[in-house]
């Protein structure tokens, strides 16, 4: 059986979601090919242009995932989503509601409200969030199609700083968990996949490397390896030696 996952009504095979905001546009197409990505995210505010539109550089079979960056509250997120639908026909929307210009950390409270507003308007909401179980449950109840917790502050390449909290989401939330932001190396992407994350999103790590195509490929391979390891179930790591005569061996 093929290993696929679903977001809303759509099915995907590739577990690598590519960010697009930091590239030289000519390089995007080959990055997508080397990453073998099926979904690419982009800021709506970035496609709100008449010159050098990033949409013109993306192959038609790739699913466009506009994000609402620039939104500072749920109403603005909805307005941006509506413009995105007009400009690119998109129905999947990555919700970003950010009230901090320095660290660009998401506002879980406003994001939850945005999920509800977008779901009520026929969108497939994909909220970017700080990994908090209660907030994730609220987002699920509000109609989220997946949960996108951050691994580390965006652009930092620091990896899975929030690992334990993402694990909790993976265990408790019955939606795809897509680790978004902070992933700086293929090994970190592999680690997220080994934990049971559904998919990984990366942008800065690839866009700012000096060999974009090979870095995209390295991420693709790491994500596939991590996924395969997760599916194969790990052998248990034991800290203590196994006693040769078990303590409870006397039981009849």
């Amino acid at each position: 059986m093929e290993d696929k996952f679903k977001i809303g009504k759509y099915e995907f095979k590739s577990r690598f979601i590519l960010g697009s905001g930091k590239y030289n546009l000519e390089l995007i197409k080959s990055a997508i090919e080397n990453a073998n990505a099926e979904i690419i995210t982009m800021a709506l505010r970035r496609i709100n242009t008449d010159t050098d539109n990033i949409l013109d550089y993306i192959p038609k079979n790739i699913k466009i995932l506009p994000n609402t960056s620039g939104a500072r509250n749920s109403d603005e997120a909805l307005r941006i989503a509506l413009i995105a639908r007009e400009l690119s026909n998109a129905d999947m929307i990555k919700i970003e509601v950010i009230k901090d210009s320095k660290y660009l950390l998401p506002d879980n409270y406003e994001t939850t409200k945005a999920v509800e507003k977008l779901a009520n308007n026929g969108f497939i909401p994909m909220p970017y969030m700080y990994p908090d179980l209660t907030a994730a449950r609220d987002m699920q109840n509000a109609g989220a199609a997946c949960i996108m917790p951050l691994g580390a502050p965006i652009g930092t390449n620091k990896g899975l700083l929030t690992k334990d909290f993402i694990k909790i989401l993976i265990e408790e939330i019955d939606l795809p968990i897509i680790v978004d932001a902070g992933i700086g190396k293929p090994s970190q992407a592999a680690e997220a996949m080994e934990m049971g994350a559904t998919a990984v999103m990366a942008n800065t790590a690839i866009a700012t490397s000096s060999d974009i195509n090979n870095m995209a490929k390295a991420f693709k391979l790491a994500i596939e390896a991590g996924r395969l390891a997760y599916l194969s179930k790990f052998g248990k790591v034991n800290n203590l030696a196994q006693a040769s005569s078990p303590l409870t061996g006397f039981l009849r």
């Binding site: 590239y23 546009l25 970035r46 709100n48 010159t51």
Partner: peptide, 12 residues
């Protein structure tokens, strides 16, 4: 090797 961007803003 830089990328000119004419707009990255949306009025909301």
């Amino acid at each position: 090797d830089m990328q000119p961007v004419m707009n990255e803003y949306v009025w909301v």
